[in-house]
Design a protein around this nucleic acid. Sequence first.
DNA 1: TGTTTTTACTTCATCAATGAACTATGCACT
DNA 2: AGTGCATAGTTCATTGATGAAGTAAAAACA
Lengths: 174, 174
Amino acid sequence: MARLGNRIAMMDEGVGRTGMIIPELPATEARLCRLMIMLGAGVEAELESTLKPHKLNHSEFLTLMILYSRPDGCSTPGELCELATQRPTNMTRIANTLTKRGVITRRVDAEDRRRVVMQITGAGRRFVQKILPPMFPRIATLFAGFSSNDKRQLDRLLHKLGDSLDRMSDQPPS
Amino acid sequence: MARLGNRIAMMDEGVGRTGMIIPELPATEARLCRLMIMLGAGVEAELESTLKPHKLNHSEFLTLMILYSRPDGCSTPGELCELATQRPTNMTRIANTLTKRGVITRRVDAEDRRRVVMQITGAGRRFVQKILPPMFPRIATLFAGFSSNDKRQLDRLLHKLGDSLDRMSDQPPS
DNA sequence: TGTTTTTACTTCATCAATGAACTATGCACT
DNA sequence: AGTGCATAGTTCATTGATGAAGTAAAAACA
């Protein structure tokens, strides 16, 4: 029963029953919230399962991929925190881990000695090029049942939700 | 720049540049994966921000809500683990925490003495009824820009993605 | 009936992530 | 130049979640 499909069905019933007790509950929207959380976690879990054999977790992989995608292969802890949604403390740990593995280097910025520059190494680039391609079939399969219109729609709706979240973050909880 | 919109744009460029280096990358699908992860986490973060004042975290809240939505207010750690996607170890901790707060009780099942029954208390029901309504405006606002067709589409596409993930979990990573 | 296996949960050691406090550098203003 | 403030990271203590091992009850089996 660990199937996502079943868990979604159970969640659906649960929100339904809660809506019976508390009629003001915006049930459709609450369902969509829960769906987003469940499927976001589901996709992340799927990703992590492919990372596990390489002893990388999501935040380390993401950090490495951001550096990989940079033309100069560089960034700073502060910038990476924003892009990867991490706290400075954890970015320090990530940098330690990736440095120890030899996939990045870390040095003090000459311009601004408060800053630290993290840079992907040649070994780091080769590592990415080794682990990435085996993921491609799974990524593609995930959306195999989606028409190109489905994908466009999903992209559009997710962007719209992102805008909503941004607007909401201007008005913190009362 | 912690805005989701900006982070999405940066991610988009990053995947684009990675696709330049590795042309086999299924860029559209990889983008959708990342979007799902980012927005799932975004919605969860929004939820947790409303829970924080009550000193509840997501897994504790979800566990309590599942019990609340049950007609008899009961479940077992094992079942709750499946529904809330938690490990038994953590469910023990969650049960400890919720019990200490007086919102649930825990007892050994008389029928099967291996099982533990967790049940929401009257205080637990009142607690849910107190913290839930203030969330409604935010939940509704999240999808304020969505037409009813948008919501139907999003629901459909997320269910479809769930089916995909379930099918994939039959074939673990090679 | 007695032995083995399975199920359900808990305990313990460990890892991942966080907030708070601290260090060091740069910047603004007098 | 000297004081005060802001920025960028790191260290440390703590929380949240996990895997591995342990305990106890039930089910399977011989």
